[in-house]
Amino acid sequence: MHELSLMMGIVDQLRKSAAENNIKKISKVMLVVGEMTMAVPDALQLAFEAFKEEELFQNAVLEIRKEPVRGECKDCHHNFGVEDFAFVCPNCSSPNVRIASGRELYIDYYEGD
């Protein structure tokens, strides 16, 4: 359950950015979470609830966009969806595969007044 510490980082960034942009109330936060991060969306939602007492987040909805795990073969440059975390190129069978997506964990944007 490290989602609470992740969420503390997220709300810190939001507080700072909201102050810079003179935003008093946030209505929506879009978070991007790769499927190869160990952050569980439900646990992130639960952690976000803990900050709802704060005026800035009172009416905020947390939306999470999941990014699937994709690999790119370093030998034949084939880009493919990784299933069951098997990092083997389906085109040339090379195990020399870079993670092209799925490790994302960032705030894409937020909306507020």
Partner: peptide
């Protein structure tokens, strides 16, 4: 309503 794009990694401080 204002939309603010961030694209800041959550783990930036740690990193």
């Amino acid at each position: 309503m204002v939309k603010v794009r961030m694209a800041t990694p959550v783990l930036q401080q740690n990193d």
